[in-house]
Each structure stands twice: as C-alpha cells, then as structure tokens.
C-alpha cells in the first residue's frame, strides 16, 4: 500500500515534469515555424505613382505577392456606377469610391493581385474593364470589387502610406486605417 502510493506520487510527479516539458517543446516548435525576422523586415515597397497610364494594369511586387496598380480614367470612374455586385446585390459605386486611392488628384486602384477565393492571379481585360480569375471563374470590376463569386470579397488592399507622388506599401497611414475601419479591406 505504502509502496504503491509512493509509486503513484512518482508517476504524478513525472507526469507534471513531462507535461511542462511537452508544452515548452511544442511552443519552441511552433516558434521555429514562424516567419523569420528577415522575412518580416523585407516587407516594404515604394512606388512612383506618376509613372502609371490610365486603364493599363501594372503588376508590382510586395512581400512576394503581386500588387495590381490600375490608374482610373474619367470613363472608368463613371461607368463603375452601373456594376452590380453578385455578393452584396448593390451597385459597386458606393464601395468603389472608398477603395480607390487619391494621389495627386488622380484615382488609383492599388490591391493585392490575388483572388480572395484561393489565391490565383486574375487576369485584367482592358476592353471589358474587369478581372477574370481562371481558377474558379471569379470576377472583379475595375476598382477591384468582386462581381461574381466564388471570391467572397473584393481584392485586399495592402497597408499604404501616401507621400507626395510616392506610395509606400507595408506601412500604415490614417487613410489605410480608415479603410480597415470602414470594412473596405481586410488586414493583409
């Protein structure tokens, strides 16, 4: 009796030590899979916004992801109002104005160029002024608002800071915080 209760105590004591060790090792293993500091630090890209032309999609790169930059023409700003979003059932114009970046008096769409469904890169069709994702047929309008599912939402917008005609991606600003607060984009 005495013996077995001593063994029981030893068993529990070992269990406690092993438990602490197991949790600690799991934490270490989790941390080893985290992105490295060097990966995180390399996360800034600066764009010169004066170089873009209207209705011509340019793909930049930020954190290894494609960034769509599409300067809006007068016509594009106007016709947007007619688009209907399949997801919300509303015209996309209300959302569009909030999604575009106003830099030096011009409007730009600046988005992460990955389909919000499963991350393919949709193609831009300048004649139709829309994006088509070949993977599962999702569509977006020329302001990056989703018009046909399966994508659940418009393109995500990267954190940005406007500095004259320069745009810094990866750094937040009051304009970006406002977009987050308005639910225009998710945090990327």
């Amino acid at each position: 009796m005495k013996n077995s209760s001593r063994r029981g105590f030893m068993g529990k004591a070992f269990g406690a030590v092993a438990g602490v060790g197991a949790v600690a090792s799991l934490y270490a293993m989790k941390r080893s899979w985290d992105p490295l500091p060097s990966v995180k630090a390399a996360g800034f890209t600066t764009l010169d916004m004066s170089e873009y032309k209207e209705n011509e999609l340019v793909v930049e790169k930020w954190r290894g992801k494609p960034i769509f930059v599409l300067k809006q023409s007068k016509e594009m700003l106007d016709t947007e109002d007619k688009n209907m979003s399949e997801i919300t059932g509303k015209t996309t114009s209300a959302m569009d104005k909030k999604r575009l970046l106003k830099i030096g008096g011009e409007y730009y769409m600046v988005c992460v160029g990955l389909c919000t469904h499963l991350g393919c890169i949709p193609g831009y069709r300048p004649d139709k002024k829309d994006f088509l994702c070949a993977c599962h047929g999702g569509m977006y309008d020329d302001a990056g608002m989703v018009t046909k599912s399966p994508p659940p939402r418009g393109f995500d917008i990267p954190p940005f800071k406007i500095d004259g005609m320069k745009l810094v991606l990866g750094e937040s600003s009051p304009e970006y915080e406002k977009m987050l607060a308005d639910g225009v984009t998710l945090k990327v």
């Binding site: 899979w33 992105p35 490295l36 990966v39 290894g64 992801k65």
Partner: peptide, 10 residues
C-alpha cells in the same frame, strides 16, 4: 503564414 514561414511560398 505560419505554415509557409513567409507571406507566400518561398
């Protein structure tokens, strides 16, 4: 990002 160890596969 944890599974990838980066923002994209790298």
């Amino acid at each position: 990002e944890w599974i990838r160890g980066d923002y994209v596969p790298a």
